[in-house]
Simulated scan of single mutants.
Amino acid sequence: MTVPLSVLDLVPIPAGGTAPQAVRNTLDLARRTEAAGYRRYWLAEHHLAPGVASSAPQVLIGAVAAATSRLRVGSGAVQTGHWTPLAVAEQFATLDALYPGRIDLGLGRSGQRRAEALRRADSPPPPREARVVDGLLLPKPYDFGPLLAKSAGFALLTTLLQQPGAESPDFADVVDDIVRLLTGAYESPDGHRAQAVPGEGADLALWILGSSGGQSARVAGERGLPFAANYHVSPANVVEAVEAYRAAFKPSDVLDEPYVVVSADVVAAPTDEEARLLASPYGLWVRSIRTSLAAIPYPTEADAAAHEWTAEDRALVADRVDTQFVGSPETVAAGLETLRRVTGADELLVTTITHDHADRVRSYELLAEAWA
């Protein structure tokens, strides 16, 4: 049985485009992917990025749900370091009240304190070389720690998204508090109950997203929740992430057995050659993220051709460029089948960015036809 495909949308702004145009493109893409048979449509959360307009996914989720009729719509993922559990529960329960039974609440650890980034910079992960597992490339890991620790942009992001003096609680505590608020079981340490309105009784599907075999995978498994592993963000760690989740899994009221979604970067076109051309700006775009933490507006193919790549540049983006699935629909489908087989994914979450919106829509449509 073919596993379902879903969509992860960063609401990219193309070079020469605008944020309002990018948002309108998202609504068009949602309608077109629904017609093509995709199961879910998730919106990412990013801030202060000139090339990404998904800074308010809760708002966009409502707009996408209103523009479609069948798709499940959700967050991929809420940056829990920037939100209180009550705010998350109320916002997503309100969405469920408007579009009952169609809302996914995806939670991630992004947005944690700058101190955590400093600790990571002081204690980098042990080096590991690239390897191929049953046909799937697991590249050399990329460590964001030093960049986060030094980045003025990351410090500014923390300042703008958190109240002065605020500290992000432990991720497991955040997840548990959200569950308690949605089930009516929240009680303060001194015995006072809190009722989220809307909130209690909402028909939300709760997901955990993660990029490694660390806390996110363990929290998802121990609480019996579905887990989304990010091959598109951290391809080196995808196998250990899903293995850690399955090892920690305990049956719950939500799931009897583990359920894994794995994300992938994809560009499909009628031919391999055309797809490679459309995907050529991707490395330049990833480079902007890894040098400044702020994605630039998505470049044109001409921009990519004009860039003078150094060996250092290529090494900086190699893990992401080498693990992007690019080619004809048949080529891409074969690559995604390898990803599914190696990870045991129950569902694949596809994210596609091209400079021209029409090429992006066509990529999703071609892939859906080939996958089916």
Rank of each mutant, 00 (worst) to 15 (best):
L5C: 03
L5H: 04
V7I: 06
P12R: 10
G16H: 01
A19M: 05
P20K: 10
V23C: 11
N25L: 05
E34Y: 02
G37W: 07
Y38C: 07
R40N: 03
W42E: 00
H46N: 02
H46Y: 03
L48G: 03
L48C: 11
V52A: 13
A53G: 00
S54D: 00
S55V: 09
I61T: 08
A66K: 14
S69E: 12
R70V: 12
V73T: 13
G74T: 10
A77Y: 06
Q79T: 13
P85E: 04
A89S: 09
F92M: 10
F92A: 00
L95C: 11
L98E: 05
L98Q: 14
Y99F: 15
G101W: 07
G101R: 06
D104M: 03
G108W: 00
S110Q: 06
G111P: 02
G111M: 04
R113K: 12
R119M: 12
P125R: 05
E129M: 10
R131N: 01
V133L: 15
G135T: 03
L138A: 12
P141H: 11
P146T: 09
T158E: 15
T159Q: 15
Q163D: 11
Q163T: 10
Q163Y: 05
G165W: 01
V175S: 01
G184S: 02
G191Q: 08
Q195A: 15
P198V: 07
G199N: 03
A202S: 13
D203P: 11
L204H: 09
W207G: 04
I208M: 06
G213F: 02
G214C: 04
R218Y: 04
G221M: 07
L225Q: 02
L225M: 03
A229M: 01
N237T: 12
A241P: 08
V242H: 08
A244P: 00
Y245R: 09
S252T: 08
S252E: 02
P258T: 07
S263M: 07
V266T: 14
A268L: 02
A268P: 03
A269F: 01
P270A: 13
T271S: 14
R276S: 13
L278C: 04
W285C: 05
V286M: 13
R290C: 01
A294E: 12
P297Y: 06
Y298W: 13
D303Y: 01
A305M: 04
E312K: 14
E312G: 15
L316A: 13
A318N: 02
G327C: 15
V332E: 00
V332G: 03
G335E: 04
R340W: 01
H355V: 08
S363M: 01
Y364T: 09
E369I: 09
